Amino acid sequence: MLNVVRFVIAGLGGLIAPAVLAAGVAMITDANGRIEAEQDGSVLGVLAELEGGARLRLAQGATATVLYLASGEEYRLKGAGRYQIGDKAPSALQGAKPEKHKLPVDAIPPVRVKPASVQQATIVMRSLGPAVNVKLLEPVSVRVPEERPSFRWTAVPGAETYRIQVIDSAGQPVAEFEQKGEAGQLPAGVRLKAGEAYSWSVEARLANGRRISRSADFAVLDVQTWAKLKRLQPAAGAKFSDRVAYALALERHEVFHLAREEWRKLHAERPTEPLLKERAGSE
Rank of each mutant, 00 (worst) to 15 (best):
P139S: 00
Y198Q: 00
E176F: 10
A183E: 12
A170D: 03
P187H: 06
E138R: 15
W200P: 00
A170G: 12
V142D: 00
S169I: 03
L136Y: 10
V190W: 08
L221M: 11
A197V: 03
L206C: 12
A216N: 06
A175G: 13
A170I: 00
P139D: 00
G171A: 12
R214D: 02
L192N: 00
T161G: 10
S199K: 08
Q172I: 14
E146A: 09
G195Q: 06
S215G: 04
A170V: 01
L136H: 08
W153T: 08
Q165M: 10
P139L: 00
V156T: 10
P173D: 06
A207C: 09
V144G: 03
V144Q: 08
G209V: 02
A188K: 15
A194W: 07
N208K: 07
V134Y: 04
F218H: 04
A194I: 03
A194M: 12
V140G: 02
I167V: 13
R148H: 06
G181V: 11
V166S: 04
Q185P: 06
P157Q: 12
P149R: 04
R214I: 09
P173A: 11
R152A: 14
S215Y: 03
G181Q: 09
V156H: 08
E146D: 09
F177K: 05
R143C: 06
A219V: 06
E176K: 14
A183D: 10
I167H: 07
S199L: 11
A219W: 02
V202F: 01
S201D: 01
V174K: 08
A159D: 05
D168T: 01
V140F: 08
L137G: 07
E138W: 11
Y162S: 01
L206Y: 12
L186M: 10
D217W: 05
A197M: 01
P149K: 09
V223A: 15
I167F: 13
E160N: 15
E138S: 14
V223S: 10
V134E: 01
V134A: 09
V174I: 12
D217V: 12
R210Y: 12
